[in-house]
């Protein structure tokens, strides 16, 4: 049963992470293009660091780092009278009230907390990639459009929101669709973050079972379980590919790009 639910987990992760990463990306791109230097340094730094390092290292890093960050913040607020250092040798000690989630809370709280940490981690990492794509797309909006807006006396902010943002999506779409494919293909990494996802269940259920532990003894079937996962992902990416191609066709309709021009020619 858990095996089938875990497919839902993957889809849920995708459904939450995609918009959240887009939001992070938008914020990052805005920061990177800002005219206020410290903000633009933060934006650029965020994009540069996350892209330069293996993503798996980031996943492993952020889960612990975020967890400790939350607990540290709660520790500071909830138990100000605590004087012992938090890092005692190889241990990370916070007071009982600051534990996330509280050790008395039920099992599903722990699972939800682990899942939301995973979502946040995915969003931070993919937000940086999205920021890069959106930054490029904002730069790709024809200069003449921005100049016209300036000629009409729009402020910098107005130009950005009314001219650049509505027009950049066509330019961002190829990059974003690539990102979506990558996001799909990175969902098995949930396993490394300690969420009971499809990889976990495939290992559990497929493993060697003797009659002593279960009513359905079977030899090692993990190979077949992973073959099923392989097929699942292949199907998923194929469907996404088809949908995204259609979307691109639709969006480039009537645009002053090569794609739009080709469509116009084909119709004429």
């Amino acid at each position: 049963m858990g095996f089938y639910i875990s497919f839902g987990t993957v889809l849920l992760l995708l459904a939450i992470t995609a918009p959240l990463a887009l939001l992070f990306g938008f914020g990052g791109a805005m920061a990177a293009r800002s005219h206020f230097p410290p903000l633009s340094w933060i934006g650029r730094g965020y994009i540069a660091i996350v892209r330069g390092v293996p993503d798996i290292a980031f996943f492993l890093f952020f889960v612990i780092a975020l967890d400790q960050g939350f607990e540290w913040a709660r520790h500071k607020v909830l138990c100000p009278e605590w004087t012992d250092p938090i890092r005692q040798g190889n241990d990370f000690v916070v007071c009982a009230a600051a534990k996330m989630p509280l050790s008395s809370s039920p099992q599903w709280m722990h699972e939800t907390y682990g899942f939301s940490l995973a979502v946040l981690t995915f969003s931070i990492v993919f937000g940086a990639f999205a920021a890069n794509v959106l930054n490029g797309a904002m730069g790709a909006v024809p200069r003449a459009q921005v100049e016209t807006a300036e000629a009409y006396g729009m402020s910098h902010r107005q130009t950005f929101w009314r001219i650049t943002v509505p027009q950049m999506w066509v330019y961002a779409l190829p990059g974003l669709s690539n990102l979506w494919m990558v996001l799909i293909k990175s969902t098995p990494l949930l396993f490394l973050l300690g969420v009971e996802d499809i990889v976990y269940w495939a290992r559990e259920l497929g493993g060697f079972k003797t009659a002593r532990f279960t009513a359905y003894p079977h030899p090692d079937w993990r190979m077949w379980y992973f073959l099923a996962l392989l097929v699942f992902y292949l199907g998923f990416t194929r469907v996404s590919e088809i949908v995204l191609t259609r979307l691109t066709n639709k969006l480039s309709h009537g645009q002053a790009t090569t794609g739009g021009e080709a469509q116009r020619r084909a119709e004429a």
Partner: peptide
Amino acid sequence: GSPLFIQFFF
């Protein structure tokens, strides 16, 4: 089309 991670496992 498939994740490298799953390819490794399989």
